[in-house]
Design a protein around this nucleic acid. Structure first.
Lengths: 77, 77
DNA sequence: TTGTAGACTAACGTCGACA
DNA sequence: CTGTCGACGTTAGTCTACA
Protein backbone atom coordinates (compact mmCIF):
# COMPACT_ATOMS: atom_id res chain seq x y z
CA UNK A 1 0.00 0.00 0.00
CA UNK A 2 1.26 3.41 -0.89
CA UNK A 3 2.25 5.86 1.83
CA UNK A 4 -0.07 8.70 0.93
CA UNK A 5 -3.05 6.38 0.61
CA UNK A 6 -2.43 4.98 4.09
CA UNK A 7 -1.92 8.46 5.48
CA UNK A 8 -5.24 9.61 4.05
CA UNK A 9 -7.17 6.74 5.55
CA UNK A 10 -5.59 7.20 8.97
CA UNK A 11 -6.29 10.91 8.81
CA UNK A 12 -9.94 10.40 7.95
CA UNK A 13 -10.31 7.74 10.60
CA UNK A 14 -8.83 9.88 13.35
CA UNK A 15 -10.67 13.01 12.30
CA UNK A 16 -13.99 11.19 12.51
CA UNK A 17 -13.01 9.59 15.81
CA UNK A 18 -12.44 13.05 17.25
CA UNK A 19 -15.74 14.20 15.78
CA UNK A 20 -14.49 17.01 13.59
CA UNK A 21 -15.60 17.94 10.09
CA UNK A 22 -12.98 18.63 7.44
CA UNK A 23 -13.85 22.31 7.74
CA UNK A 24 -13.41 22.36 11.51
CA UNK A 25 -10.10 20.54 11.28
CA UNK A 26 -8.97 22.92 8.57
CA UNK A 27 -9.77 25.99 10.64
CA UNK A 28 -8.07 24.66 13.74
CA UNK A 29 -4.95 23.39 12.01
CA UNK A 30 -4.57 26.44 9.81
CA UNK A 31 -4.80 24.38 6.64
CA UNK A 32 -7.20 24.58 3.74
CA UNK A 33 -10.32 22.40 3.73
CA UNK A 34 -9.90 21.30 0.13
CA UNK A 35 -6.33 20.32 0.87
CA UNK A 36 -7.47 18.12 3.75
CA UNK A 37 -9.99 16.56 1.40
CA UNK A 38 -7.22 15.71 -1.02
CA UNK A 39 -4.98 14.39 1.74
CA UNK A 40 -7.71 12.03 2.92
CA UNK A 41 -8.09 10.73 -0.59
CA UNK A 42 -4.36 10.16 -0.95
CA UNK A 43 -3.96 12.76 -3.64
CA UNK A 44 -1.44 14.89 -1.79
CA UNK A 45 1.67 14.13 0.26
CA UNK A 46 1.95 16.09 3.50
CA UNK A 47 5.19 17.68 4.68
CA UNK A 48 6.45 17.02 8.18
CA UNK A 49 5.13 20.41 9.29
CA UNK A 50 1.67 19.57 8.01
CA UNK A 51 1.75 16.30 9.93
CA UNK A 52 2.62 18.19 13.10
CA UNK A 53 -0.23 20.66 12.54
CA UNK A 54 -2.80 17.93 11.95
CA UNK A 55 -1.63 15.62 14.73
CA UNK A 56 -1.91 18.41 17.26
CA UNK A 57 -5.60 18.90 16.54
CA UNK A 58 -6.30 15.19 16.43
CA UNK A 59 -5.02 14.58 19.93
CA UNK A 60 -2.12 12.38 18.91
CA UNK A 61 1.62 12.89 18.70
CA UNK A 62 3.13 13.28 15.23
CA UNK A 63 5.12 10.07 15.74
CA UNK A 64 1.99 8.29 16.94
CA UNK A 65 0.23 9.43 13.81
CA UNK A 66 3.04 8.15 11.61
CA UNK A 67 3.09 4.90 13.53
CA UNK A 68 -0.57 4.35 12.64
CA UNK A 69 0.34 4.92 9.01
CA UNK A 70 3.09 2.32 9.24
CA UNK A 71 0.69 -0.17 10.78
CA UNK A 72 -1.85 0.49 8.08
CA UNK A 73 0.74 -0.16 5.39
CA UNK A 74 1.99 -3.30 7.11
CA UNK A 75 -1.52 -4.64 7.59
CA UNK A 76 -2.31 -4.26 3.91
CA UNK A 77 1.26 -5.14 2.97
CA UNK B 1 12.67 25.12 18.11
CA UNK B 2 11.38 24.88 14.59
CA UNK B 3 10.39 21.54 13.14
CA UNK B 4 12.66 21.51 10.11
CA UNK B 5 15.67 22.57 12.16
CA UNK B 6 15.13 19.70 14.58
CA UNK B 7 14.58 17.29 11.72
CA UNK B 8 17.85 18.33 10.12
CA UNK B 9 19.85 17.82 13.28
CA UNK B 10 18.32 14.42 13.92
CA UNK B 11 18.97 13.42 10.32
CA UNK B 12 22.63 14.43 10.48
CA UNK B 13 23.06 12.75 13.83
CA UNK B 14 21.58 9.46 12.67
CA UNK B 15 23.37 9.49 9.34
CA UNK B 16 26.71 9.88 11.07
CA UNK B 17 25.79 7.24 13.62
CA UNK B 18 25.20 4.81 10.79
CA UNK B 19 28.45 5.87 9.19
CA UNK B 20 27.15 7.07 5.84
CA UNK B 21 28.20 10.11 3.86
CA UNK B 22 25.53 12.40 2.44
CA UNK B 23 26.36 10.98 -0.98
CA UNK B 24 25.97 7.38 0.13
CA UNK B 25 22.68 8.14 1.86
CA UNK B 26 21.49 9.98 -1.24
CA UNK B 27 22.28 7.06 -3.53
CA UNK B 28 20.64 4.50 -1.28
CA UNK B 29 17.53 6.53 -0.54
CA UNK B 30 17.06 7.66 -4.12
CA UNK B 31 17.26 11.32 -3.16
CA UNK B 32 19.63 14.04 -4.27
CA UNK B 33 22.77 14.75 -2.26
CA UNK B 34 22.30 18.52 -2.31
CA UNK B 35 18.77 18.07 -1.08
CA UNK B 36 19.97 16.03 1.88
CA UNK B 37 22.48 18.76 2.59
CA UNK B 38 19.67 21.31 2.70
CA UNK B 39 17.51 19.04 4.86
CA UNK B 40 20.30 18.68 7.41
CA UNK B 41 20.64 22.43 7.56
CA UNK B 42 16.91 22.91 8.08
CA UNK B 43 16.43 24.66 4.77
CA UNK B 44 13.90 22.20 3.37
CA UNK B 45 10.84 20.48 4.79
CA UNK B 46 10.58 16.78 3.92
CA UNK B 47 7.35 15.16 2.80
CA UNK B 48 6.15 12.01 4.53
CA UNK B 49 7.44 9.93 1.62
CA UNK B 50 10.90 11.44 1.97
CA UNK B 51 10.88 10.62 5.67
CA UNK B 52 10.04 7.01 4.86
CA UNK B 53 12.85 6.81 2.30
CA UNK B 54 15.44 8.23 4.67
CA UNK B 55 14.35 6.29 7.75
CA UNK B 56 14.63 3.03 5.86
CA UNK B 57 18.31 3.60 5.11
CA UNK B 58 19.05 4.86 8.59
CA UNK B 59 17.84 1.72 10.28
CA UNK B 60 14.96 3.34 12.11
CA UNK B 61 11.21 3.32 11.63
CA UNK B 62 9.63 6.48 10.22
CA UNK B 63 7.69 6.97 13.46
CA UNK B 64 10.86 6.42 15.48
CA UNK B 65 12.55 9.05 13.38
CA UNK B 66 9.72 11.52 13.98
CA UNK B 67 9.75 10.69 17.66
CA UNK B 68 13.39 11.75 17.86
CA UNK B 69 12.42 15.02 16.21
CA UNK B 70 9.70 15.57 18.81
CA UNK B 71 12.16 14.92 21.60
CA UNK B 72 14.65 17.30 20.10
CA UNK B 73 12.03 20.03 19.92
CA UNK B 74 10.83 19.37 23.45
CA UNK B 75 14.36 19.38 24.84
CA UNK B 76 15.10 22.76 23.31
CA UNK B 77 11.50 23.89 23.82
C1' DT C 1 -20.66 18.10 4.73
C1' DT C 2 -17.61 16.70 1.16
C1' DG C 3 -15.54 16.34 -3.68
C1' DT C 4 -13.93 18.58 -7.50
C1' DA C 5 -12.15 22.13 -10.66
C1' DG C 6 -9.14 25.80 -11.96
C1' DA C 7 -5.88 29.12 -11.20
C1' DC C 8 -2.39 30.54 -8.43
C1' DT C 9 2.10 30.96 -5.22
C1' DA C 10 5.55 28.79 -2.65
C1' DA C 11 8.27 25.15 -1.81
C1' DC C 12 9.93 20.36 -2.77
C1' DG C 13 13.35 17.76 -5.03
C1' DT C 14 16.73 17.11 -9.19
C1' DC C 15 20.84 18.22 -11.56
C1' DG C 16 25.58 20.09 -12.94
C1' DA C 17 29.24 22.75 -11.40
C1' DC C 18 32.63 24.68 -8.26
C1' DA C 19 35.01 25.86 -3.99
C1' DC D 1 33.02 15.06 1.94
C1' DT D 2 30.03 18.99 2.22
C1' DG D 3 27.93 23.70 1.12
C1' DT D 4 26.29 26.60 -2.24
C1' DC D 5 24.52 28.45 -6.53
C1' DG D 6 21.44 28.73 -10.38
C1' DA D 7 18.22 26.76 -13.14
C1' DC D 8 14.58 23.73 -13.66
C1' DG D 9 10.09 20.64 -13.39
C1' DT D 10 6.91 19.04 -10.14
C1' DT D 11 3.96 19.24 -6.36
C1' DA D 12 2.40 21.16 -1.72
C1' DG D 13 -0.92 24.17 -0.11
C1' DT D 14 -4.36 28.39 -0.82
C1' DC D 15 -8.58 30.22 -2.54
C1' DT D 16 -13.19 30.81 -4.86
C1' DA D 17 -16.94 28.50 -6.58
C1' DC D 18 -20.36 24.91 -7.54
C1' DA D 19 -22.71 20.50 -7.29
Amino acid sequence: MEIEGAFGLVLKERRQAVGLSQLELANRSGLDRTFISMLERGQRRPTLNTIFSLAKELGVSPSGFVKEVEKYIAKNE
